[in-house]
Amino acid sequence: MAPRPGSVTFVAVLAYVNGVLSIIGGVVMLFTRDSMAGASNAGTAAGITTSAIISIILGIVILVVARGLLNGSSVSRGLVTVVMIINIFNGVLLMFTLQFVSGIIDILWAFLMLALLFTRRANAFFARRQTS
Rank of each mutant, 00 (worst) to 15 (best):
M1V: 11
P3E: 14
P3F: 11
P5F: 00
S7Q: 07
V8I: 04
F10I: 07
V11Q: 03
V13N: 01
V17L: 15
N18H: 13
G19V: 08
V20C: 08
L21I: 11
L21C: 09
S22Q: 11
G25C: 07
V28D: 08
M29Y: 03
F31G: 06
R33F: 03
D34T: 08
S35G: 11
S35P: 00
S35Q: 12
M36W: 06
M36L: 15
A37F: 11
G38R: 05
A39T: 06
S40Y: 07
N41G: 09
G43K: 01
T44G: 02
A46G: 06
G47C: 04
I48C: 07
T49M: 12
S51C: 08
I57R: 06
G59L: 01
V61A: 12
V61T: 04
G68K: 00
G68L: 05
G68W: 02
L69F: 01
L69R: 04
L70K: 12
N71F: 10
G72S: 03
G72F: 04
S73P: 04
S73T: 01
S74V: 13
V75T: 15
R77I: 03
V80N: 08
T81A: 11
M84Q: 15
N87E: 13
N90A: 15
V92A: 07
L98P: 00
Q99R: 13
G103M: 08
I105M: 10
W109F: 14
M113I: 14
L114V: 05
A115D: 00
R129Q: 13
R129V: 06
S132F: 12
